[in-house]
Amino acid sequence: MIPITEQSSLYDQLENKSVEELTRYINQEDTKVAKVIEGVLPSVNNLINAIVSKLKADGRMFYIGAGSGGRLSVLDVIELPTTYGIPKGIFNAILAGGIDRLADALEEKEDDVNEGWNALLNVEINPNDIVVGISASGTTPFVLEALKKCRELNITTGCIVSNPSTPISAQSDYPVEVLTGPEFITGSTRMKCGTAQKMLFDMISTTVMTKLGRIEGNNMVNVKLINDKIVDRGVKMLMQKAEIENYDEAKSILLAHGTVKGAMEELVKKHN
């Protein structure tokens, strides 16, 4: 049986289509992704709850993947310390070929059966942590062998795959199977599978960070003040929360304490 991710596209003779037809058909396929994710939200929620539980107990979270999905997981992870003010090393990504080779697209590395587990050993993976495999096919050796080793050592595992009943799902305590169907270009899982992965990474990290108290109301109160845009956003946030009318005063307080949350905590102390 042909895996869903390798099944023939619903469209053909693409080279004869107009630009208008191609974009319309691609958009038609993309609109299916959110609906598919809606159908697997219970599985996503189970995975998120497991991640939150591990992180609250001082464990760590690791994505492990190759290809487009692995690279997307890296992009999600590297933004979290700035956006949510978390220390580096809490949310992590292991990429086939290494994160330092992100732009090289070393697709051949996905067949390496030892590299994934060796990378986890290098960060001293242990049962306090959780490892989530990323593989559209659900068969990527780099991911599969690492998850097998994790389970042998009672390390909690999860996965995001795009085919049903895969070997990687079988090695996952918290599998998420997002069946987005055949790709617009046959086998090109950077398309709908990649879109689903990106949406899930956003959903997982945002929800986890919220449940860890990194968000208040709907604001990034722990965001790192790394550029003028973020400083300006933080100043306005502080002005609203602390009812400060003077921009420069709020900016001075914010910069003195590093985050909106830190500034608010200090202001509360002063008023008590």
Rank of each mutant, 00 (worst) to 15 (best):
P87T: 04
K229A: 01
I4P: 06
F184Q: 05
T206K: 06
P175G: 01
K149H: 05
E107D: 10
Q171H: 07
R190W: 15
E177I: 09
V19A: 05
I155A: 00
V40W: 12
S53R: 12
V52W: 15
A263T: 10
I155D: 02
V113L: 04
P164Q: 15
G98A: 02
L147G: 07
I2H: 07
Q171D: 02
A50I: 11
E21A: 03
G194D: 12
R233P: 02
K32H: 12
L72S: 09
G234Q: 09
L147R: 07
R60V: 01
I215S: 02
K229G: 00
I64T: 04
S165P: 00
T31A: 07
G97Y: 15
L254K: 05
N45H: 12
D30F: 14
I48H: 07
E29A: 01
D111S: 03
G213W: 14
T186R: 09
V231R: 14
D173F: 09
Y247K: 03
S162Y: 09
V19I: 11
K192R: 15
N219F: 14
T31I: 11
T31P: 00
V52H: 14
D248S: 03
V131S: 01
L47R: 06
G85C: 07
P167W: 12
T83H: 04
T186P: 06
H271V: 12
K198H: 15
L22G: 00
V74F: 06
C150Y: 07
N122Y: 11
S43P: 01
P42M: 12
V44D: 09
T83W: 07
R190G: 01
M239H: 04
L144F: 14
L80F: 08
H271D: 12
G98K: 06
L267I: 13
K148P: 00
G70L: 04
I185S: 07
P81V: 10
G158E: 05
V74L: 05
P81E: 08
K192I: 15
Y25Q: 11
A136Y: 14
L41K: 13
A93G: 07
I64M: 05
I215K: 05
I48M: 08
V143W: 12
L75D: 10
V33L: 08
